[in-house]
Design a protein around this nucleic acid. Structure first.
Lengths: 339, 339
DNA sequence: TTGTATGCGTTATCAT
DNA sequence: ATGATAACGCATACAA
């Protein structure tokens, strides 16, 4: 028994008694073919179970219809809402998303970007602006349009859809200051390869500096976005000489872990220790007290990023630059400083 | 200024003073070319910034190296761990993942499957076994190998990597019975297009039937995997004539929502009402009391599924059929039945 | 409206 | 070790 190959345009043409050009037209511009022949062709397509060969199509059309996104991780909830919206909007516009994760690692991200381009993506969505110049050069060279998300701190000629990480955290810190807090600590993602995390810390420092405090006394714990790691960070922070009255976390997962650990140590939140989060994830409403946090418009960001990328793919020259507003969500975990 | 196109194999060949065949060899089988010429070619590749054209390669190789996965949703944590593992293992084996979501909708899933195949995926990862016969016929016709995850309840000739949804829930129910519970209720995902959810409910019914109780009295609330919706379901269940002493949830998100709502109504968990979950998500450890749940080996499932798919892609005839063990995780939310 | 013919960029076979 | 060349399956410019 011969290995019967997949049917091609030619098979359909033969069965329908027309040329391959006509079959191609039936599929791509049905209005340009007589309805009688169109029906014959459609029947042939059905009976043969024909579907166009992707590689051949990509070769001749010079595009694949695929766009790629490289995000730090798929495993956590942090990016899932935004990416879900991104992919939904992309789908509406007829594009398909390929997802890769960088494990928050610079080299891995560079590898993934190259891998995606080798897989024929027509455009890219990237998180943050922190990567080697060589990567940007490569993207230029390949003429691959890209959009950067989760930050707006990018060169003027690049498209981005994000928000002001520093400003958001500065606002939250100012709020804590107004509640009487003077001893701050921060739990952040590792700062080394993460411009968003650095921005958030910078916001805290800016606010306390403006309040006349010394930003260099700010204790910073760098830990991954995990409950237990954030808990351990709390242990370390509370062991310090002048323990903080408020811990500003770079993310709600960390805030949730911090709250749980503080409570396990017998501290009341927020009476004894205030804790704030970032992102307004589902986590923020699961713990008790609920987390005072920064609401990030993830869905909007994903949607707008998709639109920006589609525009770039269409050849629009002006790179879209979108700054989304964030807002403080006051819930129970931030209270007045203890007396 | 002319629109300079991307460099091709021919450009490289010309610059290096060799034939395109030699350049191709340099890229795909470097050991089959003299090191002197290889160096010349590599230099030419660098200076031109050459990268192979994906479409041309896919056309002649008859494969894209891309596999697709269609999952109910990207937005929740339910599938993210498994998918992350799936993609990681795939990456190790040199494949790229394209992700699509079906919104838990049968027609949408069918559309997404066709769309992915139109995008040239060489294989597919699907969740659950519930879909139209036409979809399976289409996959056969296209000779597209696929693996089914999250269940093992599939025809014998299909590859699957999953666990026993019914058995897991039956075990949990039996545990509740041994704690004296006699009035059960279930909060489940909508059953209509979800074989895993139906399996879990069937497990509850089987256990209570075996205990001599009437499974037809079992109250079932079908709601999405959202905190608020699960809370509302609790309200309805508790309004019933003979309120349950234990609510078995099909998922930890629902269990978390149920616990919060019960507590807001002034009930103590588990003293007044026991609640169980499923999946052992991060949620389960965030709420207080922590959720007694079914641990599902998501990471293993994703990894094994990737391996199974890669095998199928390599042409292995025997479809892999993997059943992963699940286990009960006893935490605080399930206690003895109230007296 | 339909058909003919060409080219897209690569891999692989067969010579040399 | 290297080169010429034939597919691969499709879209499209041009002819009829």
């Amino acid at each position: 028994m011969a290995e019967s190959a997949l049917p091609t345009l030619e098979d359909v043409a033969r069965l329908a008694g027309v040329s391959t050009a006509t079959v191609s037209r039936c599929l791509n511009a049905p209005e340009r073919v007589a309805s009688a022949t169109r029906e014959r062709v459609e029947n042939a397509v059905d009976t043969l179970g024909y579907a166009p060969n992707f590689g051949a199509r990509a070769l001749v059309m010079r595009r694949t219809g695929i766009v790629g996104a490289v995000i730090p991780t798929l495993a956590s909830a942090i990016f899932s809402r935004g990416i879900q919206a991104f992919q939904h909007e992309l789908d509406r516009a007829g594009w398909t998303l390929v997802l890769a994760s960088s494990d928050s690692n610079r080299e891995t991200e560079a590898r993934q970007i190259r891998a995606l381009i080798a897989r024929g993506v027509d455009g890219l969505f990237l998180v943050g602006a922190e990567r080697d110049e060589a990567v940007y050069r490569f993207l230029m060279q390949r003429k691959t349009p890209f959009v950067i998300g989760w930050t707006t701190d990018v060169p003027a000629d690049q498209a981005c859809v994000g928000f002001d990480n520093a400003g958001a955290m500065e606002a939250m810190t100012t709020r804590a200051l107004s509640l009487g807090h003077r001893r701050f600590a921060v739990i952040s993602a590792p700062l080394a390869q993460n411009d968003r995390a650095r921005g958030r810390v910078a916001g805290v420092r800016a606010a306390i500096a403006r309040a006349g405090l010394d930003p260099d006394t700010l204790a910073i714990e760098e830990v991954p976005y995990e409950l237990g790691a954030a808990g351990d960070a709390v242990d370390r922070l509370l062991a310090a000489e002048a323990a903080p009255t408020v811990v500003m976390c770079g993310n709600d997962v960390q805030a949730a872990g911090a709250i749980r650990r503080a409570q396990q140590r017998g501290l009341r939140v927020p009476e004894d220790l205030s804790i704030t989060g970032f992102d307004n994830l589902e986590h923020a409403q699961l713990v008790d007290p609920a987390i005072t946090t920064v609401d990030v418009p993830h869905v909007q960001m994903g949607t707008r990023a998709a639109q920006a990328l589609v525009e770039a793919l269409r050849g629009d020259e002006q790179p879209a630059r979108v700054t989304l507003p964030v807002s403080l969500v006051m819930r129970g975990s931030l209270g007045p400083a203890p007396a």
